[in-house]
Nucleic acid binder design. Structure first.
Ligand SMILES: [Zn+2]
Ligand SMILES: [Zn+2]
Ligand SMILES: [Zn+2]
Ligand SMILES: [Zn+2]
Lengths: 136, 136
DNA sequence: TTGGTATTGATAATCATTGTCAATAAGCGG
DNA sequence: CCGCTTATTGACAATGATTATCAATACCAA
């Protein structure tokens, strides 16, 4: 029940949010850190990690875990509404998609198996048009 | 097109397969290694990693990546048929489930967005009956 | 303005996974 | 059955993403 305390508004967080607002694709904490450095920011890597985690928890950014275990983040276009993604596994481009009736279906199914506190992951990956060409 | 060469039949692989056949829940490479050690096996950790990877690629075992980036493996009940899981995030119990029309729907959707080589992840997690109680 | 406390960042520590490489043992042909 | 070729093994080092430390700093409520 401990409602999480609101994060302080700091220069670093502002810069990170700004970077996220500019590029809309999925990138790792380290990549975002690079971006910031190239923009003459001095944010520390650890801080980027912390901010992204925090933002992901509050639903302000989307987070996905790749097959290799890396966590990628991007700004979430859909506000805090729950949704899913169609993502290019080559270049990181992504679009928000709608999975009709999935939520309800999942909860229902889980219930019939005696499961509760349901959560789910639906990620669709592929090669976007450009990357498909490039791969020849 | 380079068809992968068939793995040699070795004592270690046999032992690993055996362990997988006995316990049916999702466990990490290290956990499977522990199991084997407790059964007086001398398999090396690296070997367990390699075997599980190989088996996962050939579809003989299921692999899932947790939020923390760990990869869990378990024997696959459904042979090589593509399928999905309902898994307890507390104790690791898991059941194979059927997601009607999802495959077709996903491919279709991706196509309309110009994506190809579609792959997808659908994992439903929750608390199984027992763990729900335990959590009080 | 000021004190209490979050946040920061340089750096060390974790920890799952992968790489290395000499020793070993499948599988094959003779 | 007997070497030979080569995949496999395993102890151990190396990697690489993420987390923990902890003193210095910056929010922000009072
Ligand atoms: Zn989103
Ligand atoms: Zn792409
Ligand atoms: Zn599946
Ligand atoms: Zn359980």
């Amino acid at each position: 029940m401990t409602s999480k305390p609101k994060p302080r508004q700091t220069r670093q967080r502002a810069e990170i949010l700004s970077a996220l607002a500019t590029a809309g694709d999925f990138r790792s904490a380290q990549q975002w850190h690079d971006v910031l450095r190239h923009e003459s920011s001095t944010v520390g890597l650890a801080t980027v990690y912390r901010a992204l985690q925090s933002l992901a928890e509050s639903g302000e950014v989307d987070a996905v875990v790749t097959d290799s275990g890396e966590t990628l983040y991007r700004r979430c276009e859909a506000g805090d509404e729950h949704h899913h993604h169609l993502r290019c596994r080559r270049c990181g481009a992504a679009e928000e998609i709608d999975v009709p009736d999935f939520e309800a279906w999942a909860t229902q199914l889980a219930a019939t198996h005696g499961y509760s506190s349901i959560d789910h992951t639906v990620e669709i990956t592929g090669l976007c048009g450009e990357c498909a060409k490039a791969t020849n």
